[in-house]
Amino acid sequence: MNRLRRARPWLGTLVEISVASDLDTPRLLAAVEAAYAAIAAVHGTMSVHEPASELSRLNRSAHLAAVPVSPGLLTVLRAALAFAEDSDGAFDPVVGGRLTALGLLPASEVMAAPQATWRDLRIDGDQVRFRQPLRLDFGGIAKGYAVDLAVEQLRAAGIAEAQVNAGGDLRVFGLAPQRIALRDPRAPSQWSQIVELHDQALATSAPYYAAGSSPSALIDPRSGSPYAGADSLSAIASSCLVADALTKVALFATPSRLEALLEQHDAQLLIQRCAD
């Protein structure tokens, strides 16, 4: 088996790709490049930090007129809206206005209404329209989507075994299960548990890196209140997009909504509870 491991900065974090395969090194490298290209494309399309991204352009203009969006953005938007509806707004991609008001996102030209929600958004075909100025932020879901696309590229290239890890949100595939450590929420440079994954994705939300300009600010979209708990919440699902979104849902959703969503997505939630 030929093995390769790379890490590059994308999506506001380090994205690590590890592969093992019988393919020769040039083909292995080409597969890893294709996977990074897919991640770079998601960054270029869906970063709220890049003023030139498609998402930023949408945020600047969709309250004025309907805007056609690319298939990738539409996929993520539809998935995000479904999670918003099913979680009763505990997850909401329209949280960008709140994050901006709280200084957790850089200011933009258009003043987004902090109280805007997913209900202020209309999709008609590939056209997206806002009912009032709002700011979509895919921070809770785009990393997972990018990981899924990278995994697709690696599979299509014939890679036998791989892991794509976007700063803690990850997905694995291969014959053998892979052992993934969960960071200890009390001391995040250490790990406390090991999870075995087999063709699955795992994402984690926890407050220990949430301060400052971290990409993972944990804010209740409905109230703007920060997550008050100390627990670390990890979700295991078949796709990283779903795992990523579920960890955000789990922060603020009612238990019954959360249970229903876990059931719907055949997912599992792991809670590391800090006693104090």
Binding site: P9, L14, N165, V172, I180, A181, Y209
Partner: peptide
Amino acid sequence: IQGISGATLSCE
């Protein structure tokens, strides 16, 4: 251990 999951660490 083949990977670590945790809250996203910023690479700023």
